[in-house]
Amino acid sequence: MQVAFATRDGEHVNAHFGWASQIDLYEVTPQGYHFRKTLTFGGNLEADGSEDKLVPKLQALTNVTLIYVSAIGSSAAARLINRRITPIKVQSEEESIDNLLQRLVATLHSPPPWLRKVLQTENTPTPTPQEAHR
């Protein structure tokens, strides 16, 4: 599964989702993890009430299952969930990406119910608009 991290330094989850200029992507399996790429975003990302700045991020996070953030607005969280991406707010901006990845790999061997549901949803195809209205 692909996991994303909102970060300012590539080492910690220390960025608010809406304000993040950098999101690091990793591929995570029960055997381990590896870095995939860094997504970068420009423009005015500060809190301005504009939801338009979220569109490029939402589009770039295709195939992401989880995203770790230091903070996230309720509208952005809802939009992620609608795209089957689960946002996770860390307890501290000192939270290390490496430590989170190690814990996630260990958790995949016997995932808690919430993660099992996320993983099952990940493997279920998203209905097309025509199928959704049947």
Rank of each mutant, 00 (worst) to 15 (best):
A47Y: 13
Q31A: 09
G42M: 05
G49C: 07
T40Y: 12
S50T: 08
E46A: 14
H34K: 06
G42I: 06
G43A: 11
E46Y: 04
T38E: 15
E46I: 15
Q59S: 04
P56I: 07
L45C: 07
E46Q: 07
L54F: 01
L45M: 05
E51P: 06
F41W: 05
L45E: 03
L45V: 10
F41L: 07
A60L: 01
P56S: 00
K57P: 05
D52V: 13
G49W: 06
G49N: 10
K57M: 05
F41V: 14
P56C: 02
T38H: 04
L58E: 02
L54S: 04
Q31C: 03
L39D: 08
D48K: 08
Q59L: 04
A60P: 00
L54R: 03
H34P: 11
L58G: 00
R36V: 15
E46R: 06
Q31H: 07
T40M: 05
N44D: 14
L58M: 02
Q59C: 02
G49M: 03
Q59A: 08
R36F: 10
H34V: 15
R36S: 13
G43W: 01
S50G: 07
R36Y: 08
A60R: 03
A47K: 10
A60N: 01
E46D: 02
A60S: 06
T40I: 13
K57C: 03
P56T: 01
E46S: 13
V55I: 15
G43K: 03
E46L: 12
D52P: 00
G43C: 01
P56A: 02
S50N: 12
R36P: 04
D48R: 12
L58D: 03
L39F: 13
E46H: 09
L54I: 02
L39N: 09
S50M: 09
R36H: 15
S50Y: 10
L54E: 08
K37Y: 06
L45T: 10
A60V: 00
N44I: 12
